[in-house]
Nucleic acid binder design. Sequence first.
DNA 1: AAGCGCATGTAAAAGGTTACATGATTAC
DNA 2: GTAATCATGTAACCTTTTACATGCGCTT
Lengths: 190, 190
Amino acid sequence: MSFRYFVLGLLTQQSMSGYDIKNCLENLAWLIGSPSFGSLYPALHALLEDGLATVEVVRDEGKPMRKLYTITEVGLEELGRWLEQPPEPDTSLKTFLMRLMLARRLSHPWLAEHLERRRDQVAAEYASLEEMAGMQEGAGCLGQHLAQNYGLAVARAELDWLNATLEQLSEPEQQLSLGKVQEDATLPIR
Amino acid sequence: MSFRYFVLGLLTQQSMSGYDIKNCLENLAWLIGSPSFGSLYPALHALLEDGLATVEVVRDEGKPMRKLYTITEVGLEELGRWLEQPPEPDTSLKTFLMRLMLARRLSHPWLAEHLERRRDQVAAEYASLEEMAGMQEGAGCLGQHLAQNYGLAVARAELDWLNATLEQLSEPEQQLSLGKVQEDATLPIR
DNA sequence: AAGCGCATGTAAAAGGTTACATGATTAC
DNA sequence: GTAATCATGTAACCTTTTACATGCGCTT
C-alpha cells in the first residue's frame, strides 16, 4: 500500500502525529485522498513495528497528549527504495502526485524521469481516447462523447503542464523558477 | 457501491457479458477504473439476484459459451433512482464521469445540474489549493509546489471544459453540437 | 498435444471505511 | 455543565484485488 510510504515521506519534512498528518492531508484530499483514522493509526503502528519510525509522547501544557512520529534511518532507506522503484505502470494520478510531493528527496534526474514517465502514460491515454473518439465518428451516445471530451481536456492540461515543467527542468540555471523555495519548508498542518 | 450501478447503466446500451464489460471498461480504466473479474462477476450475480438484470446463455458456433446480461424494467427504475439521487458531496472525478457517461438516461435539466455541481466542487477545490499556495508564498518545498501547480492546472482545465459545455447546453438550438449523435450508439467492446 | 485467447467463476487476503469508545481541554 | 475541538484507538463490516481453478476451441 502506497499510502504507508507517503505517510513515511511526510515524516521526512517534519515529525508529526497522526492527527497532524490527517489535517495536512485534508487539504489535498481532492488530489490524493485522505485516509481515515481507522487506517492511519494502524499504519503508523506498522511503521513502528517495522522500525521505520519512532514515537515520542509529547505533553504540551493545557493540551491533550500527542504522539509525535519521527522517521528513522532505516525508514529513510526504505523510503528511498520505494521512491526509486522502477516503472510500475500506474496510471493513477494519485500515486504520481504522492511521489511528486516527495520530490525533495528525489535526485534531479530521477525527478525528470518521473515526470517523463507520467507524460508518456498520459500521452498514451490521450492517444487511446482520441482513437476511441475517432472510431465513433459522430456516432457514440451523448454521455460517452462528453466523457471522452472531458478526459481529453484533462489529459491535454496534464501534458501541457508536464512539458512546460520538463522544459524548465532542462534549463539548470532556472531551477524551476523556485529560487526562493526553502528546502526545509513544511506543509501547513492546520 | 457505484460500480454496480454503472455496470447496470452500461447494460442499457447493449446486453453484454462480464467479459464484454471488462473489455469495454479497459479503454476507460484511466478515467474511471476497471474492476477485476473477481468483483465484476459477483456484481453481475448480485444484479440477477435483485432482479435488476437477466441472463441468457449464448452459444455461438466455434466459440466458448457466454452469458449475456440484460437489464430489466426493475433495473431501469433502480438505475433512474440512482442517477437522480441528490447532492452527494463526492469530489471524485471517477463517480462524476460514471454518471456523465450515462447521460443519455438523464433529463436535460438534470444533466446541467450534474455539470454545475461538479463545477462548484472543482471551483471550491481550486480556491482551496490557491489559498494553500498563497499561504506558503515562495516557501513550501519543491514537491508541494509542483503538486499544487499540477492540481491547479488540472482544475483549471476542468473548469474551462465545464463552463464551455454548460454554455452550449444553455443554447438549446445547438444541442451541444451533437446533432449527429445516435441515441442507440454503443461503446466499442473490443 | 501444447499453447493461446476466450470466458466464467471462487476463496483467501488485503485494505479501507464506519461506527464506536475514550479522554483531555477550552469556550460558552 | 455541556458542547466543541483536540487526540488516539479498536472492531466489525464492506469491497476489492490476487491468485487460483476450470473449460472450450483454434492454431501450430
